[in-house]
Design a protein around this nucleic acid. Structure first.
Lengths: 223, 223
DNA sequence: AGATTACCGATTGTCGACAATCTGTAATCT
DNA sequence: AGATTACAGATTGTCGACAATCGGTAATCT
């Protein structure tokens, strides 16, 4: 099931080898298949994927820019270890961006978007009810990214996405807190509700409260 | 004077070929030597620097991540054209980060830092008096970056630096507004002064006003 | 003439080989 | 024995060559 990754890559093609390899590796890291500190060996991967080292190497450099691996000169790439200090910094910036986006969201949001977001919330609730944690986390992240996009600033949204990836890596590093479903889902509901009412103050307040709560929970884990 | 770039690179060494090439190219772009839309040809550069294409290629990918070039598949890298829309977005995020850093600056700043910043302001003033625009711009950017670092969030400062590089590219794209020295230098003075007094409100207000003024001036150029 | 197709030059994409560099271990010296 | 040095293995860094792909131009067709 894993050694036909070759064909996977060979067939899809055109999205460029590097992109495919990048996504594969990103996924392996964010899903926890590769853990913090693990080496990312160019030759080993080039044999595993049956391509030369060049595209692998390039993908690794992209992973570095994305903050997912650290590269040590002449030593190679290693899945990054995100310290609590760094994670705190990243959280702070992500919250700042999210909050800024929220300030502009209500003025721009369309009915269509409210419907889409509502659907996403419901999807997350289904994941929670089925205890499908991995899907829950993924869709939760997507939901929040979509909220940020309401700020109508592509650059800001892109930065947010990138920061959130780093945070996912941090969360992945060790024991993972079991989410407080009840509280979290309720928060989502009130966020969406305020948005539907076009109540900017309530929306910003609900979102900030939710973000702060999440941050606290996640940072108080590793102690 | 320019074609011994070869020896420059060959001698410095160890900071890795890629880093040297990256910095060289970054400098060529930010200084306006390479202008928006110009192709960044791998083979040409590899001959100019007398290295193989591999390190050039890698440097180009880093430039892309830094937002300084766009890469089109199978077509190569081109110095990026930053639209006014994008520049506005980037400005908004940069201002947000700067403002957030300002909120924490007074609580943390040391006397040593105040001295250093004062020296930087004086340096900028000398540049202004000598009408050394290129030095003026460079030190002005450094000054503002140093202010952001007072926020004690490395990640935030790094993002700010990166965003500012993109903005430099935007400014470089066409006609450049002649700076309003008098107003700008006065603003620097009051920023530093508020900082020295540890007057947080005044500091934040002075900095935000200055940033906003700069933004307006720069964005109203290309119309 | 206008549109379509086939080709050509230029550039990037990928490859396999070799050089440079680092880490850890074993041999040597005091 | 402890410290130092020399070596070996593994990995990245760099290179030159070839393949794939793109844009534009010239030849062809209607």
């Amino acid at each position: 099931m894993e050694n036909d990754a070759v064909n996977e890559l060979a067939l899809k093609r055109n999205p460029s080898l590097v992109s495919l390899i990048y996504e594969k590796l990103e996924n392996m890291i964010l899903s926890g298949q590769l853990r913090s500190g693990d080496p990312v060996n160019e030759r080993a991967l080039s044999m595993q994927f049956e391509v030369s080292r060049a595209p692998i190497r390039e993908a690794c450099r992209r992973l570095e820019q994305a903050g997912l691996v650290s590269i040590i000169d002449n030593r190679g790439a290693f899945v990054r270890e995100v310290s609590k200090t760094t994670a705190t910094e990243v959280y702070d910036v992500a919250r700042l961006l999210s909050s800024e986006a929220a300030r502009h969201a209500v003025a721009n949001v369309t009915d269509e978007e409210v419907r889409k977001l509502t659907a996403m919330v419901e999807h997350i609730e289904r994941d929670a009810n089925r205890d499908d944690l991995s899907s829950y986390y993924a869709h939760n992240d997507l939901f929040h990214l979509e909220l940020v996009k309401l700020g109508r600033n592509d650059k800001l949204a892109e930065l947010y996405r990138s920061l959130n990836n780093e945070l996912t890596l941090y969360r992945q590093r060790g024991l993972r807190s079991f989410p407080d479903f009840e509280r979290s889902l309720a928060a989502h509901r009130s966020i969406i509700e305020a948005l539907a009412r076009r109540d900017s103050a309530a929306y910003q307040q609900a979102l900030d409260a939710h973000s702060t709560k999440m941050t606290e929970r996640l940072l108080n884990l590793g102690v």
